[in-house]
Structure formats: structure tokens, C-alpha cells
């Protein structure tokens, strides 16, 4: 779909099939995301307190949950690196952990940006050293650190292990970010899906769930395409090395 027809036709079936499947999935999930955003921007009513500016919630919370998920996914694959004795399989888990961390980094940067966009009209500032914001920034910086560490560690076996350790440590920060609004005094609102706080009405929760699902599916599609590209790049480098 996103590959030229001539190149696609020359590919072996074993390669062409997943490429076509995930390209189609990416396109469909992008369309679903557009529909979800249409609901969030034009169909649901305004909030009684914040007016229309609350609509940032649908994109902000969705990307935040995706960021949390991909930090955990990176740690999960990082753990599998340690429990895998087969070097090739350990390498595959490392690729998955690396891809997940890239996804986490993209989504956590979006969390910070959309949060800032929301903070300016509601709090009057673009940024505040609030526990939720600060812990989110630390999480983002940990993701940056992971990628820098990978880039500046040339020895493969050492890089795989050190990356796995950093991904596991980074995931520990996720619950700290999530519970930071309860643990410390914060200007940030509490969690949206906590029953006792009644932060969101039924229709808002429904549109938020649709947006969460759409963003999550889109992130899965992006992950798969990026995972393919990382894996193919590595195969190409190895193949050139053997020649």
C-alpha cells in the first residue's frame, strides 16, 4: 500500500504479506482516529466548567495512556532479553524493546506538548513544576536517555543488556506519574477514570474510550511498521557485513 507496486511485486510472499497487512492496518487505524477526533471536536457538547477547551482531554489522555503502555511494553521485552538464552531471540526482543521505547518517547513528548497546550488557557501558564508534570518530564528524559545510550554503545551484547536495564527502570516511573496527583499536592486534575472522583460524565467517558481505542490501534500499527524497519535495517547491515 505504501510501497511502490514494482517493488511490492518482486518481494517474496513471506515478506510481502506482513508488509501489506500492516500498511492496510495503519491506514484503517488512521481513518478510525480521524473519526474519533471528529466525535471529540464536533459531536460532544462543551464542559460546564472549562467550555470547549476541555476537548484537549480526548487527545491528551489517549496519548498519555499509549505512552504508559509502550514504556511497559519496552520493559516487558527488556525482561525477556534477560530470560532468553538463544542469542537470536534475545536480539529480536531487544528490537521490540527498542521500538517500544521509540513509541513511548513519541507519545510522551505528545503528552507534554498537549498538556502544555491545555495548561495555558486553564492555568494561565505553559508549564509548572507540578508533581505530575515534573514526573512526566522525567519519564520523557528517561526515554531520551535510553536512545542516547543505545546510540553511544557500539558493542552489541553490552548494548542489549544495558538497554534492557534502562527500559525496566523507566517503567518504574510510570506508576509514579500516574499516582503523582494523589501522592503530592498538585494543580493537575485527578485521574479521569476513577469512579469516586466523578471527573467525567458518561458521554465524555464514551468518547474518551473511543479515542483511547483509536489511538491505541494507531500506535500498534506505527509500532509494527517501525519494528519492520528496524529489523530490516539490522538484517541489511548484517548481510553487508557477511559479504
Amino acid at each position: 500500500m505504501f510501497l511502490s507496486k514494482s517493488l511490492f511485486q518482486t518481494l517474496p510472499k513471506v515478506v510481502a504479506k506482513p508488509v501489506r497487512f500492516w500498511d492496510t492496518f495503519l491506514l484503517l487505524s488512521a481513518l478510525m482516529q480521524l473519526f474519533a477526533w471528529y466525535f471529540a471536536l464536533f459531536l460532544i457538547g462543551a464542559d460546564t466548567d472549562q467550555g470547549d477547551v476541555y476537548r484537549i482531554l480526548f487527545v491528551h489522555v489517549s496519548v498519555a495512556w499509549c505512552a504508559f503502555f509502550w514504556f511497559f511494553a519496552s520493559a516487558f521485552f527488556g525482561l525477556r532479553v534477560f530470560f532468553q538464552r538463544d542469542q537470536q531471540k534475545a536480539k529480536a526482543h531487544d528490537f521490540s524493546s527498542h521500538t517500544s521505547m521509540e513509541m513511548a518517547l513519541v507519545f510522551s513528548s505528545l503528552v507534554l506538548m498537549t498538556g502544555s497546550f491545555w495548561g495555558r488557557p486553564t492555568w494561565g501558564v505553559w508549564w509548572d513544576w507540578d508533581p505530575r508534570l515534573t514526573s512526566s518530564l522525567v519519564l520523557f528524559l528517561m526515554g531520551c536517555g535510553y536512545l542516547l545510550l543505545r546510540y553511544f554503545t557500539p558493542q552489541a551484547s553490552y548494548r542489549i543488556k544495558i538497554s534492557a536495564i534502562v527500559s525496566i527502570i523507566s517503567s518504574i516511573n510510570v506508576p509514579i506519574v500516574y499516582y503523582s496527583v494523589n501522592l503530592w499536592r498538585s494543580v493537575h486534575q485527578p485521574q479521569t477514570f476513577v469512579q469516586r472522583t466523578h471527573n467525567a460524565s458518561g458521554d465524555i467517558q464514551l468518547v474518551l474510550l473511543i479515542n483511547l481505542m483509536a489511538t491505541f490501534l494507531l500506535s500498534i500499527a506505527l509500532y509494527k511498521v517501525r519494528r519492520q524497519s528496524i529489523s530490516l535495517q539490522e538484517t541489511l547491515q548484517e548481510f553487508r557485513g557477511y559479504q
Partner: peptide, 14 residues
């Protein structure tokens, strides 16, 4: 806008 004038910039911008 409920007092949040120029909210469009922030919402659509995000």
C-alpha cells in the same frame, strides 16, 4: 468559549 477566548488555537493546535 465560557470565558476561554481563543480556545480554538489551543484545541485545534493540539
Amino acid at each position: 468559549d465560557y470565558g476561554n477566548s481563543a480556545w480554538q488555537w489551543f484545541v485545534y493546535g493540539s
